[in-house]
Design a protein around this nucleic acid. Sequence first.
DNA 1: GACACGTGGAG
DNA 2: TCTCCAAGTGT
Length: 372
Amino acid sequence: MRDSVGAVARKQLPLRPAGPDTVAALLDWYDRERRDLPWRMRRGRRADPYKVWLSEIMLQQTTVKAVIPFYEKFLLRWPTVEALAAADLDDVLAAWAGLGYYSRARNLHKCAQVVVAEHGGRFPRTEAELGTLPGIGPYTAAAVAAIAFGEAATPVDGNIERVVSRLFAVRRPLPAAKREIKRLAESLTPQRRAGDFAQAMMDLGATVCSPKRPSCLVCPLQQDCHAHALGIEAQLPVKLARAERPVRFGTAFLALREDGHVLVRKRREAGLLGGMLEIPSTDWGDDWLQADLALVQQPVRADWWAVPGVVSHTFTHFRLELQLFRAIVPVDTSMTFWASPERCRWVPRHELSNAALPSVMKKAIAHALREH
DNA sequence: GACACGTGGAG
DNA sequence: TCTCCAAGTGT
């Protein structure tokens, strides 16, 4: 009842374009409702650029909840950009294991080294310079410039895209609308408190202006929102449908040595799960390999047992179905030609939890080691 | 512009 | 079960 009344009323309200009053309302809301996050300083304090940068890299396409434990772990282990630059890349990858998008970890490490080697350990202070560093794109350059250095830069992430597209009732579908949304966001960016403005927009998108059922009743920008006035807020932003996800199939081998070591292999540096560890497996193809053909690629000569069941894992652009083979082998076992011996190594079973194993591999290993 | 690139939680 | 999506970047 209240909804229908509200819908009628708000359609008759003449709306002005969002402007300085909108920004003021947003910043007031932010001062009241601001979330306490590990990388945020108290109100009015400028945050440590290293912490802002580290958190922003981790937050790329990743939820706050998932990031927090990783952020705490990294900061404890590498408290400064110098410490991170001096770290072994494999240690950084191992610490990143489970967070996904592993090229971020490589670029994080590379970026730290560039900051130390070419900038004396100080992050550049401008959006333009930040944008030249590895792993820092348009969003992150603007975010760090605004949040850490107070530059009036305008980061546009998924949250801000959503808030802006609703605020201005942008109906053009993404990604074609990106430029328009960026321009509109820039038109709101205040000279003072640009960092707070960006974080307020993102907080609003994360908590109030949510994708499915936005909480317009408690939104500080309700009076300024054209999508809400039109009753189309839940339909925005418009996104083009994604392509269907194909399925790929593979067979992986869990070799358990009699002294409790497991055979792992380092993946090549580029591409999917680049530089991370895996248990040796066949290529991932469009269909299952017959067991006898798969066994041709066994990493060590052994009496392989087909583990019942299949491990299924969904990546961004395909789903993987993994069949597992398991074998117990003597300590003097050597690699076969198929295993890329130079990339293989035996790891004590109890050290696997700290190794650079991506989630899909932890899942596969757990499945293969389970009692059946 | 299009596509590769992870993972886990929400609905 | 299944789709969507979360503080994007690199090619």
